[in-house]
């Protein structure tokens, strides 16, 4: 195996057409991993979204950090690399609320807001969400195999599944 493992941290994103590359978002809680894959061009991108809306963004922040700016930003990059929008398979995982604390619901319930914002951004960009594994109260690690487009979701105590 000559896999190249690319870890996508908070607010980051990567694009690759290298079939040996495996991209990973480790331990997604309220954050959302969003994968885009063109199975014909065999180009994929994975982004690690932290917050729903960039209206409160500070100067110089990455577009990929916010749901509303991430989707059009990544789409644009993919099109530049030769992907076609109508072939893109888009999948999301995450948006959980791992810490459930009464009295702090508003401060900690970012997961649900992220899910809504990502869905909205995907529709707005003219794309369709192919599959999703979101919500709940547990973390997810999202692995994206560029060679095949396969997405694996790993959890603690709830097993592993293909998305």
């Amino acid at each position: 195996m000559t896999e190249n493992l690319l870890s996508i941290g908070l607010g980051e994103m990567q694009i690759s057409g290298n079939p040996d590359v495996v991209m990973v978002c480790y331990g997604l809680g309220s954050c959302i991993g969003i994968s885009f894959y063109d199975p014909f061009a065999r180009i994929g991108a994975l982004a690690h979204i932290v917050l729903p809306d960039s209206s409160l963004a500070r100067a110089g922040e990455a577009e990929s950090k916010y749901a509303n700016t991430c989707v059009p930003f990544v789409l644009d990059k993919l099109l530049q690399k030769g992907a076609k929008a109508n072939r893109l398979v888009v999948k999301i995982a995450g948006g959980a609320q791992v810490l459930q604390v009464s009295g702090m619901k508003n401060r900690l319930d970012i997961g649900n807001r992220n899910i809504e914002a990502v869905r909205e951004a995907v529709v707005k960009a003219g794309l369709t969400l192919t599959s999703q594994d979101v919500g709940g109260n547990f973390g997810r690690t999202m692995q994206f195999f560029i060679g095949t487009g396969k997405i694996l979701i790993k959890t603690v105590g709830k097993g592993e599944k293909e998305l």
Binding site: S30, R58, V98, N137, F138, R140
Partner: peptide, 27 residues
């Protein structure tokens, strides 16, 4: 102090809500 929450999970996912809140205020 708020009421406590105890979870068994990946550290990244436990920290996520916290980091999301903090990241709206700074890097």
């Amino acid at each position: 102090p708020s009421t406590p929450a105890v979870v068994l999970d990946m550290l990244g996912s436990i920290l996520d809500n916290i980091l999301a809140e903090l990241s709206s205020k700074g890097d």
